[in-house]
Write a protein that binds this DNA or RNA. Structure first.
Lengths: 339, 339
DNA sequence: CTGAAAGCGCTTACAG
DNA sequence: CTGAAAGCGCTTACAG
C-alpha cells in the first residue's frame, strides 16, 4: 500500500483469490445476474481488502463514456459568502447522487472560462453548473452546449436554458409586508442602482406590497445608490430629511442596513423603537450580530445549489426556470405590532 | 457535436485526415520527436477541429496512472469566508500547473471523510489537500497515506506531515506592535478561550511584544471569552472598568472588534481618539466597513491555499511545516503616533 | 457457477 | 516521415 508501489489491479486480486478478473468484477460490483458461491465471494473480498485494492475510476469512466463528476464554473468563489453556500448545497446534493464536484474559478475571464470548460469536457463530466456570485444575466459560453448544464444564480436570454434563480420580487414583497404587518405606513427603501434582477426585482416587490396595502407609492421614499454600508449611511440622511420621514426602512441588503444603523445611531434614533429596519441577504456575520440583530430576507444560495444539481441530473420537476423562494429571517430590528 | 451523438475519437480524426491514430496523437500533443510534414499537421488539425474532437482525459489518465486532479477535503466550505479564500488560492495555483480541483465538504464527519477520500483515490488524484476552516490540530485519516497530501490551515501531531498554517504568534505580535508604535502603554487583549493555535498563538505574540517593549505583562489587561461580537461587547465592559483602563485594545478577531465598537460607543468613547482598536482576520465585510474602518491583521488563507498546492506538487521549498505570515492591514482605528 | 476475450480511447516504443 | 500493435484497468456479453 505504499504510494510508490505499482497500484494493485483487478488482475492482482483475481490471482490472489484464484479466480478470473470477471469474477472479481462481478463480486465487487454486486452484479445481480452473477451466481457466485458465497465462498468465492468471500475469497475475492478478502483478497481485495488484503491487497488494499481500489478500483480505477478512470478505467471505469472510460468504459462508461462519462465520469461521476459535475463541473462547477464560477465567476468567483470567495468574494461573498454566498458563492460558498451555493457550492456547499451543490456539493451535498451531488454527493447524495454519487457525484463529485470539479470546481473552477474563472474570475469572469472568458479565456479562462473556455479553457476550464475544455478541460472539464475532456474529463467527460456528467454535467456543468455555470454559476455567478450575484444574480445576473449571462451569456453562456458556447462550449456549454456540448454537455448537460444548468445556470445557477444567473440566467441567459434564452428562456429554454435551464436556470435556477432567487425570487427577488417575492423577497422584496416579503420584506415590505413584514413592515406593513408591523403597522408601518411610510416605508423607505434604500435600493441599489445597478441594472440587475436584484435591485429591479426587490423594487418591484416593494412597490407591489405597498400598492396591495392600498398605500400610494411615493418616489420620495425610495433612494438608490451603491450596495454597501456607505449607501445605507447616506440613504438614511436623505430619506430622514424628508418632511414626512419614513418610520421603517427596507434596505437593499444587510451591508446597506449596517450603514443605515450607523447613521440612525448618530441621529439618536433607536431600532426598532423609533424606526424599524429590514435587510436582505441574511449575511450572518452582519445580520446576526448587529445591535439589535437584523431581521432580513435570506438569499437561498444553498438551495439554489441543491436545485441546480437536481435539475442537472434530471431529478427536479418543473420547467427550465426555477425560481427559489427567499425566506424571511426574523430577528430584532422590527418591533412587534402595536395596534 | 450534438451531445447525444457518439463522441468523436482519435480514430475518427485519423480517418478524416487519412493518417494513423499515432500520427494524430503526435500532432495534437506536439510530440518533440515526431517529424511530421507541415501539410500532414495541418490536415490533422483541420480534421480535429472540423469534427469538434476533444481528447478523452479519462483514457489519458488511465495510461498515465494518475489524473490531473487535486482533491480538496474540507470540513466546511461556506461557514466562513476564509474557506473560500483558501479554495480560491488553491484553485489558482492548481490551474497554473494544469490541475483541476476536486472538492468535497465533509462537515467533519469521519464517515463522509473516508468515503470522500475513497472516491478521490479511485479517481487517482495526483494529491489531496486536507483543510479546515479554522486553524487547528487534526488527526489525518489513514487513507491520506496512500497519496501525496498536504494539511492546509491545520496540522497533525506528526511533525513530518507537511502542513501549511498561519503565523498566529507573528500576527499577535504585529497587532500589538502596531499599538505600541502608536504610543500606547496599556494595551488590552480580548482573547478567545478555546484551546487552539489561534488564541494561544496570538496571546504568545501579544505577550512577547509587550515584554520586548520593556513593559510588565498585566493579567488584568487580558480578557478571554468567545470569538464573536458578544465577547467584544463584554470584554470592553470588563477591561474598561479596571482602575487603570487600557488606552488600546487588541481584539481576537474582527467580529470581537465589532462588538467592542458597540460597547465603546455606548460608553461615549471615540475610536481612535479615545481608544485605539486592532482586530484580526481581515474579514472585509466587517473590517472594511465599520466606522471607523478597522485596522487589523489578515489571515492569509489565499496564500495558504497557494502554498499548499505548491508543497503538494513539490515546487515549494522548505521543510514540512510552512508558516505563513499574517500581514497587517492599516485602516483608521489606530491613530497616528503623537510623541 | 466461472473464464476467455473484446473493447473503451488513448500513447508509445518499435518497425519500416 | 508514418503505421501496426500492445497495453493502461476495467466491464460485459458470450461460452461452457
Amino acid at each position: 500500500m505504499s504510494r510508490d508501489a505499482r497500484r494493485v489491479t483487478i488482475t492482482d486480486v483475481a490471482a490472489r483469490a484464484g479466480v478470473s478478473v470477471a469474477t472479481v468484477s462481478y463480486v465487487l460490483n454486486d452484479k445481480p445476474g452473477a451466481k457466485i458461491t458465497p465462498a468465492t465471494r468471500d475469497r475475492v473480498r478478502a483478497a481485495a481488502s488484503a491487497l488494499g485494492y481500489r478500483p480505477n475510476a478512470l478505467a471505469q469512466g472510460l468504459l462508461h463514456g462519462t465520469s461521476r463528476f459535475i463541473g462547477v464554473v464560477a465567476d468567483a468563489i470567495a468574494t461573498t459568502p454566498f458563492a460558498g453556500q451555493l457550492l456547499e448545497g451543490a456539493q451535498a446534493e451531488a454527493w447524495r447522487h454519487g457525484y463529485l464536484l470539479l470546481i473552477a474559478n474563472t474570475g469572469d475571464d472568458l479565456q479562462v472560462e473556455q479553457n476550464t470548460l475544455r478541460v472539464m469536457l475532456e474529463h467527460r463530466v456528467a454535467g456543468v453548473l455555470y454559476s455567478t456570485y450575484f444574480h445576473r444575466q449571462v451569456i453562456a459560453p458556447r462550449e456549454l452546449a456540448e454537455v448537460p448544464h444548468v445556470l445557477a444564480n444567473c440566467y441567459s436570454a434564452d428562456p429554454r436554458q435551464t436556470a435556477v434563480v432567487p425570487d427577488e420580487v417575492g423577497g422584496g414583497r416579503s420584506a415590505t409586508q413584514l413592515l406593513l404587518d408591523a403597522g408601518h405606513r411610510r416605508i423607505g427603501f434604500i435600493n441599489s442602482v445597478e441594472d440587475a434582477p436584484g435591485p429591479s426585482g426587490r423594487l418591484a416587490g416593494y412597490t407591489a406590497a405597498i400598492k396591495d396595502a392600498g398605500l400610494p407609492p411615493d418616489p420620495a421614499l425610495v433612494f438608490a445608490a451603491g450596495h454597501d454600508q456607505e449607501s445605507g449611511y447616506v440613504g438614511v440622511q436623505v430619506l430622514l430629511d424628508d418632511p414626512q420621514p419614513p418610520t421603517a426602512l427596507f434596505c437593499y441588503n444587510d451591508r446597506v442596513a449596517m450603514g443605515a444603523y450607523d447613521a440612525l445611531r448618530e441621529r439618536g434614533l433607536r431600532v426598532p423603537e423609533d424606526i424599524a429596519v429590514v435587510g436582505f441577504d441574511n449575511q450572518e456575520v452582519i445580520a446576526g450580530h448587529l445591535r439589535p440583530t437584523l431581521t432580513t430576507v435570506a438569499l437561498p444560495h444553498y438551495e439554489i445549489g441543491v436545485r441546480a444539481v437536481q435539475a442537472l441530473l434530471g431529478v427536479a420537476d418543473g420547467g427550465p426556470r426555477h425560481v427559489i423562494e427567499c425566506p424571511v429571517v426574523l430577528r430584532e430590528s422590527v418591533g412587534t405590532r402595536v395596534d
